[in-house]
């Protein structure tokens, strides 16, 4: 993984609460056996009309949202299925950070495991961000804040291990593999054949 230290982008906004992973990527696109290329199905049934053309009513299809890599969303983003295809699709589509007042547990884990920033802010901060689409934001991972155009800052919590992984571009796999001896000892102590 590449280190994720700073994200600078205008914000795109999807204000709905409870955007579930079926909306992020419908199940019929899950028959793939790779992680690649899912961006074209991201928000598929929301984004395209029946004839396959872009749905002009979908917020991310509007010109000011094009190319934005920071997505501000309604509460409880990523609820529903555990499909990691959701963060894969968002990343491939060009989203690097999702900001909400609440992000579903499994989605947040999956996102951070793929270097997609999943940031939780207060409800008041989220409302403000939702009301100001298209503003320039800078997310500083080390400093754990979002810099606003007027010089203001919104701080956020980040699970320290996930933060470490993001900043150093390492993944949790390596950390787990380093624990082989402890795992073997646990197995031996619990009658698990190695």
């Amino acid at each position: 993984m590449n280190p994720v230290t700073r994200i600078h982008s205008r914000s795109a906004v999807l204000a709905d609460d409870n955007i579930d992973t079926d909306r992020i990527i419908p199940a019929r696109f899950l028959t793939t056996t790779t992680r690649a290329g899912l961006g074209r199905h991201c928000f598929h049934d929301w984004r395209y009309l029946a004839d396959g053309s872009d749905n002009p009513a979908f917020a991310l299809n509007q010109s000011q949202a094009r190319g934005c890599s920071i997505l501000v969303t309604g509460r409880n983003f990523g609820c529903g299925s555990s499909r990691e295809h959701a963060p894969w699709a968002l990343l491939d589509y060009g989203i690097a950070a999702v900001i909400s007042s609440e992000i579903a547990d499994i989605f947040r884990n999956n996102a951070l495991n793929n270097g997609l920033l999943a940031i939780v802010v207060s409800a008041a901060e989220q409302r403000w961000l939702l009301a100001h689409p298209g503003i320039e934001l800078v997310i500083d991972v080390a400093g754990q804040y979002i810099a606003l155009p007027d010089g203001g800052r919104i701080g956020f919590e980040l699970e320290p291990f996930a933060r470490h992984c993001l900043l150093h571009g390492v993944d949790a796999f390596g950390y787990l593999l380093q624990q082989q001896a402890a795992i073997a000892a646990w197995e031996a102590g619990h009658g698990v054949a190695a």
Binding site: D105, N109, N113
Partner: peptide, 22 residues
């Protein structure tokens, strides 16, 4: 509980998972 595919890999390889106490 449910996990993502990256974590499926973790469990396949190490039979362990990284978790904060809920």
């Amino acid at each position: 509980f449910g996990i993502g595919t990256t974590e499926v890999g973790h469990v396949l390889a190490t039979q362990c998972l990284l978790q904060r106490r809920p």
